[in-house]
Amino acid sequence: MPFTLATWNINSVRLRAGLVSKLMTEELPDVLCLQECKSPVDKIPVEVFQALGYTHMVARGQKGYNGVAIFSKIPMVEAGAADYAALGHARHIAGKLENGVTIHNFYVPAGGDVPDREVNEKFGQKLDYLTEMRDAFHADKPEKSILVGDLNIAPREDDVWDHKKLLKIVSHTPVEIEHLAQTQDSGKWVDITRQDIPEGLLYSWWSYRAKDWAAADKGRRLDHIWATPDISNAAHSSRVHKIARGWEQPSDHAPVFATFDL
């Protein structure tokens, strides 16, 4: 049975519950993974989403910071939550669908502004987080799994608006890209978005700082959908729902979609 999945850094699920509902109503994903929910789990407006058919939820939350949630129309049970790098942050939740597919939803630390762990603790935390993700997937090889989320790294040259200008900017530095590549390789994860859209500039995030984000179009592809090799060939119809970046009081991220025939 095919299902469509979307991932979206919502930048406050309570503030933007209306936008979440709009996406659910207009685009009809079967599974929606949110990051940066900025809410304790008991304060998430679950009843709003249940009324739209999303009767299953797994989540980890914090007040005003971080937070991840998976909403599903398909029956789903919680399948774990990891605290990589022992940060005490709500950055990972996993759910297992009734068809046996496990979905990992991640919000990788952004890493601050300076790409040097000696002077910027947050950058070190980001690298440590990715290292522990790598080691976890190396130790316990995932199968029939999907990994999504705001991974806060744009790995390819065509995942950013200017490769050379961003080489020393956090999210596109060589050390981050190498850490992400090792994490991806440890689980043999397939980048579904780029499997479907192998060439060309592609972004999922545009800064709030741009006066006219659409005209400037200085974006980065920070949001990802990966899958294990045993199900990667079942994926298709990947897209970035860029229009959502232009909605009223939007997140600075746009939702990313993929469909799986499983």
Rank of each mutant, 00 (worst) to 15 (best):
A235M: 11
T7W: 09
V108A: 13
L28V: 07
H224C: 03
L166N: 12
V160P: 06
R221D: 04
Q50E: 12
V48C: 01
A6V: 03
S207C: 13
N99P: 10
A244V: 15
D135R: 10
K164F: 06
Y208I: 06
Q184P: 01
T193D: 05
I197L: 15
D159F: 03
V77M: 05
D158T: 08
A235H: 06
K122A: 07
K188M: 06
K38W: 01
F106D: 02
G64T: 10
T131D: 11
Q125G: 06
H241T: 11
G246C: 11
P115L: 07
I169W: 04
N11C: 13
V48G: 00
T173Q: 04
A214D: 05
T131Y: 03
L180E: 10
H56F: 14
I243R: 14
D212M: 05
D128G: 07
D223C: 08
L166T: 13
M133A: 05
I197S: 06
M57G: 02
Q249A: 15
L32V: 05
D196G: 10
G246E: 15
G67T: 07
A85I: 05
S207E: 08
A154Q: 14
R156V: 08
E121N: 09
K73I: 11
E78L: 02
P109Q: 09
G111C: 11
W8N: 13
E132H: 10
E199Q: 14
R14W: 01
R14I: 15
N233S: 14
K211C: 00
L15C: 06
D128I: 04
A90C: 03
I70A: 03
K38M: 09
P45Q: 04
G64Q: 09
W161I: 11
G64S: 13
A216G: 04
G149K: 10
P250W: 13
K165I: 00
L130Y: 00
G61D: 09
I103N: 11
R209H: 13
H224T: 03
G67A: 07
A81V: 11
V148F: 02
Q249G: 08
G61C: 08
V31Q: 03
D116F: 13
Q62Y: 10
V48N: 07
K168P: 01
R221P: 02
T4C: 14
K126T: 10
K211V: 00
L180C: 02
V31M: 00
D159A: 02
E78V: 01
R209G: 10
I70G: 00
V20L: 08
D30T: 00
G64P: 08
P229M: 06
R117W: 03
M133Y: 08
